[in-house]
Design a protein around this nucleic acid. Sequence first.
DNA 1: ATAACATTTCAAAAAATTCTGAAAATTCAG
DNA 2: CTGAATTTTCAGAATTTTTTGAAATGTTAT
Lengths: 181, 181
Amino acid sequence: MTELPQSNYELIMHFGDMGSRWGFNRTVGQIFALLFVSPEPIHAEHIAATLRISRSNVSMSLKELQAWKLIQIKHRPQDRKEYFAVAGTVWIMAKAVLEQRVQRELAPTVTLLKQHLSTVEAEKQHQSLREQTEQLLTLLQWVQQLADQVQQLEPSQIESFVKLVRRVSKMLAFKNKVVFK
Amino acid sequence: MTELPQSNYELIMHFGDMGSRWGFNRTVGQIFALLFVSPEPIHAEHIAATLRISRSNVSMSLKELQAWKLIQIKHRPQDRKEYFAVAGTVWIMAKAVLEQRVQRELAPTVTLLKQHLSTVEAEKQHQSLREQTEQLLTLLQWVQQLADQVQQLEPSQIESFVKLVRRVSKMLAFKNKVVFK
DNA sequence: ATAACATTTCAAAAAATTCTGAAAATTCAG
DNA sequence: CTGAATTTTCAGAATTTTTTGAAATGTTAT
């Protein structure tokens, strides 16, 4: 129940270490990685034993992963336990992460900046602060919109999307050269 | 030296609260926000007094903001102190954040996954794990590339870029409908 | 070189976050 | 309904991260 190939172990520890940079904690990262490398859905006891963490920690971390929509619960006939597996393909999970992060990292600030700009009369601030604040808000909203667009894509379309953006970007770079050089 | 308009105060506290979600800590977020709303460059003592934090904390946090390339040091004639201001326009700072976050959040995992895939012989893993791992690596590298493209853009081009991506995305959504419905 | 001013370092304190164990709640077969 | 199996909750313990104060280091005018 506890034997893990060395290569998987490294991956799991890495996801644990990166966890906090990705917006969750060590255990959540490790559990996600464990589910990622597991060929079959596994249950909470199994996770606790493999990662040597408490059953209660597993319970809370699984809740967190569910909030991120990164895992799904599976049931087996004749078995009361809940088994867990990653939520789907890499692309499905990536979309979930994107959605959550926009929600957690951008949305609150967008709300605040909107409110800020509508509350504070323009005359009370120096010109450039107001302009910079408006630019920041605009930029954050653009990112939100881009994220929304990306969410719409089907798995089969991501590659085309990446390539098209690459072309768009090249085009703009070229325009730039022609105009300014 | 310590009086702050209420609206700026709210903004600063918000940036403090969001700090940890953005990859730095409360103080770093607050200092950045303070510099953002300050019409003039300010010095470390001023920051400490305004935010009521220790001088040493200010020193370390300013170092951190410099590592993020989010601030710049200004000098005044006849004055030994260092004055600080945000690094430039919103777009310049956004590019700095994007660069840092790709570096901190994606690069280490890309390295690990590459190494993982080249080390572990294909036969030793179940087929689908290898495929999923490859997909994850590919996706992370796409994000890196997109970030690189975006970094190249001049301020004047961002809006065109956003609009073009919007069109690209709409186009793909339409293709999808035609093919599958 | 010195002294006054300024910044940085770092060990330890404070604060925040994560983890645990015990108890409570839930689920479901009989 | 009972009780065994399983999951969840949550107060306090453990750990990690952040902040501080004191000392060290660095800088510049005289």
